[in-house]
Design a protein around this nucleic acid. Structure first.
Lengths: 116, 116
DNA sequence: AGATTAGATAGATGAACGTCAATATGGTTT
DNA sequence: AAACCATATTGACGTTCATCTATCTAATCT
């Protein structure tokens, strides 16, 4: 019949050739939720923020320092931090003047697990 | 003087609290390159495509089958596949009528490594 | 050669996103 | 209470992106 089927038969080398957390087909809903999470990380500024916080004492930093480091406006940085908090990649804690943002490593691990 | 400094001193528990591939601050260029890669994965349709290919015999699938599975137009699927190929997450190989797309697991592993 | 088939490309459209300036919020110091 | 400080929110603007329809390309079959 078709080449396609022929191809498939002749090339078969057994299943499970490619280990991955995205193992089985996923429905649209799960795919959207997962994409949402990846989107949070798929921005250069947010990756820089993550790296900066990761490199901070206690893996914790406040908006002012981060703003200075990435050289963007303070509202922009606040916006990005909110995205990361919504994705549960960061958590925030207020103390007086400052708001401290810290990394949720477990959450990053979840993402990594999906890819490996 | 400021609370900020006080806070930092009193809270110190030692360095390297948060292991991560995004360990040190990264410059804008690297951040952009990495974001580009995450962006390729940060889309529900592309995640579904990856999962579908992953679950296919030989981790290899052709456009028609994928189009049918995700229920989007064929050009849209072709577009997404191109994005994944450009990101080197998929590779393509033409054979007669069909173009076979297969997963580059090493590339997914690289992404995972950044997060863990 | 002509018809058929799988996939790629081009162009259009609407939605989502990153950024900023301006302003609001809520705690702090005097 | 008033001035001040760090951060959050709002609204606007330009860009990027996912999707579609229509068309093109290249390979195969009759």
């Amino acid at each position: 019949m078709t080449q396609r089927i022929k191809q498939r038969q002749t090339q078969a080398r057994g299943p499970a050739c490619c280990p991955s957390g995205i193992g089985k087909p996923i429905n649209r809903k799960s795919a959207e939720a997962l994409a949402e999470l990846f989107k949070a990380v798929a921005d250069p500024t947010r990756l820089q923020l993550i790296a900066l916080i990761r490199d901070s004492d206690q893996c914790t930093a406040c908006v002012g320092d981060l703003t200075e480091a990435v050289r963007l406006s303070q509202p922009t940085v606040s916006h990005h931090l909110k995205v990361l908090v919504d994705a549960e990649i960061l958590s925030k804690e207020k103390d007086g003047y400052w708001t401290w943002y810290s990394l949720n490593m477990a959450r990053l691990g979840e993402l990594a697990a999906v890819l490996s």
